[in-house]
Design a protein around this nucleic acid. Structure first.
Lengths: 162, 162
DNA sequence: CTGCATTACTTGAAACTTCAAGGACTTGGA
DNA sequence: TCCAAGTCCTTGAAGTTTCAAGTAATGCAG
């Protein structure tokens, strides 16, 4: 198990630029939470964060999604989505059907069991996160949320400008 | 390649708690940057973010670090560190030596070539990040940095209280 | 000292991910 | 109609990461 006695945000030195320090801190926070949630998801549900994310997408889209749409939203490659969906399908969490209008595409949707399982995971997930973020004041939370919104749109624009 | 036309932060629905939405946004931002930087690092240097992070640790610690310390700081398992170090050693970036005071531990340090390579990667890294974060005002940046500091300490405390 | 619990690292298998190439289907223009 | 190009997904190989079990060295209780 990875101990946490040392602050992992020691990836670069003092003299570095603000932008870099900001990114490092962001990365550290994200990784720390990912590891906690991932471990909890595995411990309590035998699942994982990528699987949870995929189910969450489908929960939001009751009519199902095509694999390509999942790939976009989850920020992973198409091959990975195929693999994840196969695995979730084998577990009875999701089902595939052909799109009537286009013979190339598959539509994936939650099964009733998938919906039940996801609901239970989502409740637990929410508890875990609330605990991890617990010390942040509501004001800090909403500020952070807003600022990350700015950051996201900055990244998005830069992305498109490539 | 993963397209970006759709906002990936569509992982859960409207009714969810603030904490969850905050986490999702954080995760999305972090993943987007990770993918950009990882792709650039691979394209320009044939390297990767985990390798870069490991080198960065060593740059900050000229006397070298034990594998366990790297595992703590990088937030990855010991097995992974062994693997990364083997790979970087094969590339001539780092070198191992036994700790004189304890026959179980290895000390890893940058080679001169590793130091040179890292310096070049760090400069590029900084440019890329500056570009991605470019639209954020200095004020937003420093606020974000501070708030992420709060978040980090919240996670850390909760972690210890486990 | 001796033995046992602990610590540091490694290893092999399995989980997960990307990448590049390939197959099926659709679309649009000749 | 037919073909060429493009889109959607799958596949196989290679890369990366975790996990659990294993090896070697340490240190402490007896």
């Amino acid at each position: 198990m990875t101990a946490t006695a040392v602050d992992p945000e020691t990836r670069l030195g003092e003299g570095d630029h603000d932008a870099l320090r900001l990114w490092l801190r962001l990365f550290t926070c994200s990784t720390m939470i990912e590891r906690e949630i991932g471990a909890a998801l595995k411990r309590e549900f035998g699942s994982s964060l990528p699987r949870f994310d995929l189910l969450a997408q489908l929960e939001r889209n009751p009519d199902g999604l095509r694999l390509g749409a999942l790939s976009e939203r989850l920020l992973v490659t198409g091959g990975n989505v195929t693999w994840l969906v196969n695995s979730l399908e084998a577990d009875g969490m999701v089902s595939r059907r052909r799109a009537p209008e286009d013979g190339r595409v598959w539509i994936v949707a939650l099964t009733p069991e998938g919906r039940r399982t996801f609901a239970s995971m989502a409740r637990a997930h929410e508890r875990w996160i609330a605990r991890l973020i617990g010390e942040l004041s509501p004001r800090d939370r909403s500020q952070l949320h807003a600022l990350l919104g700015h950051l996201k749109s900055s990244i998005r624009h830069e992305d498109a400008a490539r």
